[in-house]
């Protein structure tokens, strides 16, 4: 096939035509990321303690959204039980700090490892399921974990909660304070974003995207799809478990209802989808955007917070079904910034 074809374009053109992309230096994502982190560090001294806690929560959701993006965005396995890893990380921390009296700085990585191992083990059967079967199965796993935690009160405090001793002589690690947790969650968000960026640019990123698009074709290209999916799931769980560990220590007293709350999973998914699934920047923007919108509504429209936020999310998904970052990429490529033609393009 030495000739190039002149036939009409294929009928399926869900993606827009390609224009010339503006060239940016290769280091710009790292440079931009470093500036953003410096900005967050500088911002800290300007915040009241209430604002500081809010921004800390934003960091936590940036970390969670970035983690979900690995399995749900890049790999295309929509995990609806992600909060299970969050809770698992949190309760691992409680057990290690309360019963084993280990330092938080040991409990944190241990929580990540426990979540990763758990994900790898359940991944072997679950990652054979596709689409909504996988979603429902993972949802079931998270519910099962909540039941388990509720039913072993000797270790977890059961439904009435567990408290990590964090002041005085009984504290194995002194509570970090608002300033400390601001830095801890900022650090977690940075770690998650960097892990995703490295995966995205490396060989693993190619494998995950190939698996996402077509597993049979990926396997024919020599991609060990079982390993690729399991690694993505385990790393995603590890990062989520670490966030859970930090959250448990920050809250001091934790309850299964809160730590395994399906709302947390839903938030992660919405943030990733709105920001741009399968992109490095998308979940960061999505998490920040939704967290800020939510906080603004809580202050200015407290009685209609959920309703308004829900409506905003629906409108955003209709206008930008592929997420902000993917929309921007397409728009720059085609020089077409109209939201209406975007809606038409994705045939919603």
């Amino acid at each position: 096939m030495a000739e190039s074809s002149t036939a009409a374009p294929a009928a399926d053109t869900t993606r827009p035509a390609r224009g010339r992309r503006p060239r940016l230096p290769a280091w710009w994502p790292w440079g931009g990321g470093a500036l953003l982190v410096l900005g967050c560090l500088g911002l800290q001294s300007q915040l009241y303690s209430g604002q500081e806690r809010t921004v800390t929560t934003v960091f936590m959701f940036v970390a969670l959204a970035a983690a979900w993006n690995l399995i749900g965005g890049y790999t295309g396995y929509a995990c609806f039980g992600q909060v299970g890893f969050f809770g698992l990380g949190a309760y691992t921390t409680v057990i290690l700090m309360v019963h084993a009296r280990l330092s938080f700085w040991i409990a944190l990585p241990a929580a990540a490892v426990v979540a990763a191992v758990f994900a790898a083990v359940i991944g072997l059967p679950l990652l054979r399921l596709k689409g909504h079967y996988f979603a429902v199965a993972t949802l079931g796993v998270a519910e099962g974990l909540r039941e388990l935690v509720t039913n072993v009160p000797r270790w977890t405090g059961g439904g009435s909660g567990a408290t990590i001793p964090s002041t005085g002589d009984r504290a194995v690690t002194p509570w970090l304070g608002n300033d400390g947790f601001y830095l801890l969650f900022l650090g977690l968000a940075v770690v998650c974003a960097v892990v995703v960026a490295l995966v995205s640019r490396g060989r693993t990123g190619y494998a995950l995207r190939a698996v996402n698009q077509d597993e049979d074709a990926a396997a024919a290209m020599g991609v060990n799809t079982t390993v690729a999916k399991t690694v993505a799931f385990a790393v995603s769980a590890a990062l989520t478990g670490a966030a859970g560990a930090a959250y448990a220590f920050q809250q001091v007293t934790i309850y299964p209802q809160r730590l395994f709350d399906v709302d947390i999973t839903v938030l992660m998914i919405v943030m990733v989808v709105l920001g741009g699934a399968g992109t490095v920047l998308g979940p960061i923007l999505g998490a920040a955007g939704i967290a800020i919108a939510s906080e603004y509504l809580r202050q200015h429209l407290p009685e209609a917070h959920d309703l308004t936020l829900g409506a905003l999310i629906i409108i955003a998904v209709i206008l930008l079904p592929q997420g902000v970052v993917n929309f921007a990429r397409d728009a720059v490529r085609t020089r077409d910034f109209s939201l209406l033609s975007n809606v038409r393009r994705y045939r919603l």
């Binding site: 993606r15 060989r203 190619y206 494998a207 995207r209 190939a210 996402n212 698009q213 077509d214 049979d216 074709a217 990926a218 290209m221 020599g222 991609v223 399968g278």
Partner: peptide
């Protein structure tokens, strides 16, 4: 079965990276 989210060159790059 193209990988739709990847460019044509990246489609082939997957095979080069993961092939023998």
């Amino acid at each position: 079965k193209p990988f739709r989210g990847l460019t044509v060159a990246d489609n082939v790059t997957v095979a080069v990276m993961f092939g023998p």
